[in-house]
Design a protein around this nucleic acid. Sequence first.
DNA 1: AAATTATTGTATCATTACGGTACAATGATA
DNA 2: TATCATTGTACCGTAATGATACAATAATTT
Lengths: 235, 235
Amino acid sequence: MSTLISSVDYLPGISIDCVIFGFHDNQLKILLLNFKSTDWLAVPGGFIKESENLEEAAQRILEERTGLTNIYLEQFHVFGDRNRRDNEVMKSAMAAGGNIIGPDHFLMRRFISIGFYALIDFTKATPTPDVHSDTCEWYDIKEIPTLVYDHSLMVTKALETLRFFLDEKLIGFNLLPEVFTMNDLQNLYETILDKKLLRTNFQRKMLSLGILERLDKKMTGAANKAPYLYRFTGK
Amino acid sequence: MSTLISSVDYLPGISIDCVIFGFHDNQLKILLLNFKSTDWLAVPGGFIKESENLEEAAQRILEERTGLTNIYLEQFHVFGDRNRRDNEVMKSAMAAGGNIIGPDHFLMRRFISIGFYALIDFTKATPTPDVHSDTCEWYDIKEIPTLVYDHSLMVTKALETLRFFLDEKLIGFNLLPEVFTMNDLQNLYETILDKKLLRTNFQRKMLSLGILERLDKKMTGAANKAPYLYRFTGK
DNA sequence: AAATTATTGTATCATTACGGTACAATGATA
DNA sequence: TATCATTGTACCGTAATGATACAATAATTT
């Protein structure tokens, strides 16, 4: 029996794809789905209901993949090249999943995709495959295999946008737990920007922003001075 | 006889709207159309052909309105709110233009619009109305009346984006003729950013970027030192 | 309990970027 | 030749940033 989605409930010709960032073990990661019974990897996506605004649709898609609500997200680019999707990939992927779709099926038509990137707390997410995938897993951003369609480009563009707005919009905190050390924060920045930062100056700059609340010290058990914990207060 | 466009040639449910910036008389201006026989003003827009990439569609729309090719443009946001368009406005506007459209017409359905902003040389453009408009005219950005649908929001967002990337992408030069004085450039920046800049520091900064080629002096005929002319070299 | 160790918090100094002022240069006019 | 408005650049002080130094401290080792 087919679980293939139909076109009746969704806006035609438009999809949403989400580059979902998480941070763990000093690695920046994204969530990828694999099409059933294939090696093809793709960024999680979905369609827009007649009743939804764009961001609502993106939030729904994100919740379905992560179990989280109220996620930080931003649209970053629209991907609409004429031949951005290879329909043979789609057809094979659907066939492997047990769904036969003809050339007139709406999934075979041209699609324009609105790219969103999302920043979530890795420790709180529960990656969940969709009906077309076997797995939904985290991949280190430095080791992303080739993705289907233009999804590799999407990831590149999302990462560029994240880097660009990291300081501007102070969005990095969405990738950390509620409470963190200055070292955690610096590791996050260094990983995203892919360069080393000077510890002392990083601390000075972050503290000068006036967006951090200093909490108790964190007794790590290590043989050294215990660092303070901080909470992001958003000014 | 109706000149109403049909939906057969275009992607359904998706439009492109363009905020077209020009600079003249020390004013930042945008091109606006008015719906035939009405007071309603709108940003120029259009639809995407099956054969076009997004940017190609935007370039075509821009050429139709300005006569220019190879225009600097960037997508800046997707507008897709469920109720972003008031269909009564569309119906009345079409009726005033001599086109009766029923509730099932594709123009009555939900549309998602990809917003592009474009920067053009005012002196080279030839504003041209489309089939639904009587006029296509420049409006000072400081005196934009209320626009239809969410077009006021589009203009605001486009201007914010332009300001944000003015230095970052060095895009201001697209609004000037090929050759200009430092004073021209400063006036442009002051108008876009809506604030005064210190002449001496502005000159220092622009020259230090290494993107300007100094040409001959411009003999203005005024009783003072003649300024140099510059050309943008794009490094 | 004193010495050791790794890490943290902060002070300090040098360099650069930037806001602001001063002033000489210059193309025309009086 | 003096005057004038504007331009190009030098200069000064302050703020932001890069880089180093060092004391403080939580555990471990002696």
